[in-house]
Design a binder for these strands. Structure first.
Lengths: 150, 150
DNA sequence: TGTTGGAGTTCCTTTAGGGAACCCCAAACG
DNA sequence: CGTTTGGGGTTCCCTAAAGGAACTCCAACA
């Protein structure tokens, strides 16, 4: 194997990278999120090579993030997010928050999020799933878990 | 250019991928986060090619995510996270939450987070930076922002 | 019977990752 | 004062993966 296989590492970051770490994969998920669900649409919107798009879609389906399903009697297929896939969008939303803050420059963010609950233009922040208070890298201790390597 | 340049796209996901989207980059940040700061340490811990490690470190320094600084009179350097870099760890923490949930299997998560504020073993969740309520992909409308493409 | 459009394959070129060997430099050692 | 050691990289070769254009297949439709 030429490119290192991350899936065997005892690290959830590495394992997640095995799913969405290849070039284009997060952008494919973004496109499907916003409504581009068919091969031709994705190819045209992203400008990705058809060969690579095929590989990425197959990989995402294999990993259970996308489902390929027919939408016509003719051999036509669309790609839809599974539950796993929809939860992966969390990763993208945090990338958006970071990119908006540090890379958007003068022009400002390319897209805005309006939060249904409060109606405001906003962005995501990280909170503790247990107590709800802010939870960032400096707010935690890292401990070995049950699945730690030997 | 052979691999497509994501940095020019009007998309904060694509721009963030230009910074940390190459193979190994998130794992390098993880390692620096947990205390591996020197070239030899990173190379040994990750098992990454020295050539690629050099390229990645230079790229991350160029993008302002890491700072390379001497730690000795001898030509010895360590890599430390900048503010930008520390905020990128948010992305990694969300990847951990997803990987722990969907990929850890029987063995359970390789590492655990203990939240300082509440003292509990927990993980991150996404909240609205404005109102504090949960904020996931289905809880928002996406609107064009000032930096949208023409 | 021919054309169209979606959904891929195939094939070729170029680049980037893997890996081993090599290099430079400033202590520290004998 | 010549040699070893260790950190921090370069260089080089080989293979795999990205880009891109052309080609294929198939079921409607004209």
């Amino acid at each position: 194997m030429q490119r290192t296989n991350f899936s065997e590492m005892a690290c959830s970051i590495a394992r997640t990278l095995d799913v969405i770490g290849e070039p284009w994969s997060p952008l494919i998920l973004r496109d499907i999120w916003v409504g581009f669900s068919r091969f031709e649409q994705l190819q045209a919107d992203l400008g990705i090579s058809r060969k690579v798009l095929t590989e990425r879609l197959n990989h995402l389906v294999d990993r259970g993030v996308l489902e390929r399903r027919p939408y016509d009697q003719r051999p036509r297929y669309e790609y839809v997010l599974t539950d796993r896939g929809r939860e992966l969008l969390d990763v993208l939303m945090v990338m958006v928050a970071w990119g908006d803050k540090w890379l958007a420059g003068q022009a400002g963010p390319p897209v805005l999020y309006r939060h249904h609950a409060c109606g405001e233009i906003s962005h995501v922040d990280l909170a503790c799933a247990h107590c709800g208070k802010p939870m960032h890298a400096d707010d935690i201790d890292i401990l070995p878990g049950p699945g730690a390597a030997a």
